[in-house]
Amino acid sequence: MVTLTINGVEVTVEDGTTVLEAARFLGFPIPTLCHMEGLSPYGACRLCVVEIGQEPKSRLVTSCTYRAEEGLIVRTASSQVMKARMMILELLLASCPQSKVIQDLASKFQVRQQRFRQEHEDCILCGLCVRMCEEQMMAKAIGFRGRGEKRSIGTPFDIRSEQCRLCGGCMYVCPACQLRCTYAEPDKAICGGCANIHPPCYIKEQFDDMMCYMDPCVACEIIKK
């Protein structure tokens, strides 16, 4: 058992508990994007940053991957943390503005402007779908490929994976493609069959960039080229 202080409140947790879990146990809200219970922590989105230690030696760490230590002093909403969090949200908005999850988070944290070059990425590389596929579905059909700016998620050789069982878990967890999946932006929407939406999409050509790794799609049986 280790005892740590979060926002001035002492808490005793079991060894191996992460700071995020301890803070949530106490009821302090820490926003997360790439964290999901049941999946291993990954620390990709950096939204869950907290400040540990005391000034002037304090530093920012991702609470989802940081294990609680004896005597650790944590602040979950200091000015430094809020500043970093707003910047991260602004950057996420710049890369993937169509995501409702990111929009909601940005609005919640008072992000009122976006000062970077606007991109419309399909993917924020949070790795949720990869971990979902591997850890919960035991399939390992999709994974990370390439590196640097060419890094992407997909099946090996961009062809249908034999491991894929068309479970749709990857789409279910994706924070970036929800809006498209639910027809809020019809130009970019994919069939949304996974969400039982009517009518099914029938014009495959419009959806070249769809982030559905299912081939064919369970709902509309469109075969990806």
């Binding site: 090996p156 050789f157 491991q163």
Partner: peptide, 21 residues
């Protein structure tokens, strides 16, 4: 790559990831 995956017991995704990295 498929044969390597089969022989080493690793998933093709991992091997493809390393090969493209």
């Amino acid at each position: 790559l498929r044969t390597v995956a089969e022989k080493t017991g690793r998933s093709l995704v991992d091997i493809y990831g390393v090969a493209t990295f």
